[in-house]
Design a protein around this nucleic acid. Structure first.
Lengths: 332, 332
DNA sequence: ATATAGTATGTAAACGCTTACATTTTTATT
DNA sequence: AATAAAAATGTAAGCGTTTACATACTATAT
């Protein structure tokens, strides 16, 4: 392996000068730069990044923790984070927390031990207090899809309440007055807020919320099926179903089909997340777009701004979801 | 930041001893270990990984290059690679090559500059020669989903030919004799081999291959739609469609529905990849399972074996795909 | 008690860079 | 031509570990 020392020797300059040209820092005469560059080329020199990190106290790597590496939602997020970070020459170290508190902590610990310059965390299970404490440390942290008042300007989050609100409102405006709701686990803030938005829309239209028409699922397709079975068995009539995510909506639709019910003729349905496969469903699923691509990019930009001193970046902490209407809804 | 030096001081031992206990290397008296450990705890000491890397000439990080970070296929792969690598305490640095030669090279360059101990590459666009040359270098490389004879034991790949073969054979055995084929880009080895498998199965059943019933798509849903339009317009009758991936199969199914054709009544269809959303389709799509989870794990294990000296790992270089029959096919 | 292996600990030299500071060279000013 | 200021380059001290190697202990056998 060739080192900076050999380059400096061949080029006939000092270590410092070589470092200056390879880092484009400081002033170097064009002639000297040329000499160095040609030596670099001749020796096929690559700076040793470990040494660079140690000496500069900066690893140029950013740790990412997301619930899952696969899945339409997280995948897009990750994809966008990586794109802007790599564009800026930063390394991306990934870990998956699987929505489990112990695992999430382990991952954070792992990233902390990895000399990351900053962390982008998409966590569910770890407590606010834990994160606030973590934030006292020396390493900058960005929270994705989570809002904690004490660290508001490090949070990039979706207005889930508004999402739940516009989803429900969309059906209400189409004349539906009897709505079922398929929620995610209520302890997850996202689920909770989406449901709150649902209730708000109902109230605004002068309708009462019926707990019996609400099913608490797991965000998985299977629980969408269960939800539909439950709703049919309860027997309270409804003409619209609002789901807290698209997977569960797919489950609802499948069970509906098995029962001979047609969407949107027999009932309208709307999902949440606007995940890629929702357009593969039949009928195509209406949904709430979460702008996860933008959120991912923003998280990365935040890091660039906070840690790497890119000043001309303006941060947007909160994102408003968009309503996407497709074939799965129709006027009552 | 507390350093090993402060720990050694507080514990009243030398640097070397601290290093020994934090790394569980060498022999240390229980009593000494205790002293060190308590000093570590008291000072909340974390070894500086950059310094460790520099001194030990090992970064404990593995570079990954995959075409996309999102998408059902690559996501699962990545997920499994990460899981086994992190279990072993290795850092995973990810990059996305977007199936573009320049980008793929850039990513590899980037990873090479990142002091990775090993690379796992899932690349399409870069040439065999390039990879062979890369392989001459000092850093171990594993190729995912690609086979190059010269580096056979560093390749983890699917038997695509066999996949194409069993997909087609499945329809033939159900009595279909007129089959259309929706291919991926033929320059991609995967596509090419799948098609070859298709032809082989036809030949085995004494049927002739009709180029006119083959459409070369892009692996995207939209080209599945185009494929179906093309096939209908050509007007040659067929009762089965074999697709080189599930996205295109979804496109075919959608266009079929638009044209009033029913699956599997009017024709049977089978996809490839057995991607997660294929069970959300209606009817549920039959497909070829690629065991990408296992392949991802295996790639990671290869690295563990080749680079990190885990001896008791046995490597499987080639994976046989599995046929998954669902609602989208029926006997002729 | 003494020699002999071990075993446990310590010493100090890398590892390959960056960077503050010192020195030299160049350019501009008078 | 002399001087000051600015620009280019060099010097060398870290950065925080790991790891040969050296040394100091223990325990066992004599």
């Amino acid at each position: 392996m060739t080192t900076i020392y050999e380059v400096s020797k061949l080029a006939g300059v000092s270590l410092a000068t070589v470092s200056r040209v390879t880092n484009n820092s400081g002033n170097v005469t064009p002639k000297t730069r040329e000499k160095v560059l040609s030596a670099v080329a001749k020796l096929n020199y690559r700076p040793n990044s470990m040494a660079q990190s140690l000496a500069s106290k900066r690893s140029n790597s950013v740790g990412i923790l997301i619930p899952e590496l696969h899945g339409p939602f997280f995948g897009i997020m990750l994809s966008n984070v990586e794109a802007v970070l790599r564009e800026a020459g930063k390394r991306v170290i990934i870990t998956a927390g699987h929505s489990d508190e112990t695992k999430e902590r382990d991952c954070i610990e792992f990233l902390l031990n990895s000399s990351c310059d900053a962390l982008i965390l998409h966590v569910y299970s770890v407590s606010d207090d834990y994160l606030i404490k973590l934030n006292q440390g020396s390493i900058p942290i960005i929270l994705l899809n989570r809002f904690i008042p004490e660290m508001a300007d490090q949070c990039i989050s979706l207005d889930n309440g508004h999402g739940g609100y516009i989803a429900t409102k969309a059906l209400l405006e189409l004349g539906h007055t009897e709505l079922a709701y398929v929620s995610g686990p209520r302890w997850k803030m996202d689920s909770f807020k989406r449901l709150a938005g649902h209730k708000k829309a109902l109230a605004e239209f002068g309708l009462s919320y019926n707990e019996q028409l609400t099913f608490e699922g797991t965000f998985e397709e299977s629980s969408g099926k269960e939800a539909m079975k439950y709703l049919l068995q309860v027997g309270i009539p409804f003409t619209g179903v609002v789901c807290a995510n698209d997977e569960m909506a797919a489950g609802v639709m499948e069970t509906a089909r098995e029962q001979g019910l047609k969407v949107p003729e027999d009932f309208s349905i709307i999902g949440f997340d606007n995940v890629s496969f929702s357009r593969f469903l039949h009928p195509k699923l209406s949904s709430i777009d979460c702008r996860i691509d933008e959120m991912g990019q923003m998280a990365a930009r935040c890091v660039l701004k906070n840690m790497y001193g890119e000043t001309d970046i303006e941060v947007q902490n909160s994102f408003e979801p968009n309503l996407i209407l497709r074939e799965s809804v129709k006027r009552r």
